Amino acid sequence: MDFNKNLLIYPMAFYAFWMFGVAVHLFRTRVRALKNREVSMKYFRAYTEAPPPEYSKVAERHYENQFEVPTLFFSTGLMHFALGAANNLTLGLMWLFVVSRLAHTYIHLGSNNVRFRMVSFFIGWFTIVALWAQMVFFVV
């Protein structure tokens, strides 16, 4: 039975929507910091004024993280799709990456336990390396 490469859209779409949720969370933390007068509106003009409180800074940094490693996730997912080089392992690795990033968000925006956060980050990196290795194997 052939693998349905269209299944790859689900982990990518799920994660894209998750990223939108992280953006909403960032917006809400910024509004909260402004309402509580913990940061000035001037800060958001050039990010040179006194920084926001830690909870808002963590949310800001977490949002920025969504445009670092996850770009490798989306690009390899699209390459697997375009080249028809996907299989059940590909799909499993993609979902594992998504789960690792959900855990990373939960930890980073929650307890922010660096040890646990590092584990979830490593799992995500491992899956990205495995996806790229699989891509190279299929193309060569």
Score class of each variant (00 low, 15 high):
residue 14 F to L: 12
residue 15 Y to I: 10
residue 16 A to F: 15
residue 17 F to C: 06
residue 19 M to G: 12
residue 19 M to K: 12
residue 20 F to P: 06
residue 20 F to K: 07
residue 20 F to I: 08
residue 21 G to T: 05
residue 21 G to I: 03
residue 21 G to W: 06
residue 23 A to M: 11
residue 24 V to H: 11
residue 25 H to N: 11
residue 25 H to I: 09
residue 27 F to P: 15
residue 27 F to D: 10
residue 27 F to R: 14
residue 28 R to C: 06
residue 29 T to R: 09
residue 32 R to A: 09
residue 32 R to E: 09
residue 36 N to V: 10
residue 37 R to S: 10
residue 37 R to C: 08
residue 38 E to L: 11
residue 38 E to S: 05
residue 40 S to T: 08
residue 41 M to E: 03
residue 41 M to K: 05
residue 43 Y to V: 00
residue 44 F to I: 00
residue 46 A to M: 02
residue 47 Y to K: 01
residue 48 T to V: 00
residue 51 P to E: 03
residue 51 P to W: 01
residue 51 P to R: 03
residue 51 P to S: 02
residue 52 P to N: 00
residue 52 P to I: 00
residue 52 P to G: 01
residue 53 P to R: 00
residue 53 P to A: 00
residue 55 Y to S: 00
residue 56 S to I: 02
residue 57 K to N: 01
residue 58 V to P: 03
residue 58 V to W: 00
residue 61 R to G: 04
residue 62 H to D: 01
residue 62 H to I: 03
residue 62 H to F: 03
residue 63 Y to M: 10
residue 63 Y to L: 11
residue 64 E to S: 09
residue 64 E to W: 04
residue 65 N to L: 05
residue 65 N to W: 05
residue 65 N to Y: 06
residue 65 N to H: 08
residue 66 Q to P: 06
residue 67 F to H: 04
residue 67 F to V: 07
residue 68 E to W: 02
residue 68 E to D: 01
residue 68 E to C: 01
residue 69 V to K: 02
residue 70 P to M: 11
residue 72 L to K: 02
residue 74 F to L: 05
residue 75 S to L: 15
residue 75 S to D: 13
residue 76 T to M: 14
residue 76 T to V: 14
residue 77 G to P: 08
residue 80 H to V: 05
residue 81 F to T: 12
residue 81 F to C: 13
residue 81 F to W: 15
residue 83 L to C: 09
residue 85 A to H: 04
residue 85 A to M: 03
residue 86 A to F: 14
residue 87 N to A: 05
residue 87 N to P: 02
residue 87 N to I: 09
residue 89 L to N: 15
residue 90 T to P: 11
residue 90 T to R: 04
residue 91 L to R: 13
residue 91 L to I: 15
residue 91 L to T: 15
residue 91 L to W: 12
residue 94 M to Y: 14
residue 94 M to C: 15
residue 94 M to N: 14
residue 95 W to D: 05
residue 95 W to G: 08
residue 96 L to A: 12
residue 96 L to K: 12
residue 96 L to S: 10
residue 97 F to V: 13
residue 97 F to S: 10
residue 97 F to D: 12
residue 97 F to P: 15
residue 98 V to Q: 08
residue 98 V to F: 11
residue 98 V to A: 03
residue 103 A to Q: 13
residue 103 A to I: 15
residue 103 A to C: 15
residue 104 H to R: 06
residue 105 T to P: 13
residue 107 I to Q: 01
residue 109 L to Q: 05
residue 109 L to E: 04
residue 109 L to D: 04
residue 109 L to V: 10
residue 110 G to P: 12
residue 110 G to K: 07
residue 110 G to N: 07
residue 111 S to G: 10
residue 111 S to K: 09
residue 111 S to A: 08
residue 113 N to L: 07
residue 114 V to W: 03
residue 116 F to G: 07
residue 117 R to E: 07
residue 118 M to F: 08
residue 118 M to L: 07
residue 118 M to S: 08
residue 119 V to M: 04
residue 120 S to K: 04
residue 120 S to Q: 06
residue 120 S to F: 06
residue 121 F to T: 01
residue 121 F to R: 00
residue 122 F to P: 09
residue 123 I to E: 02
residue 123 I to Q: 01
residue 124 G to V: 11
residue 124 G to W: 13
residue 125 W to G: 08
residue 125 W to P: 09
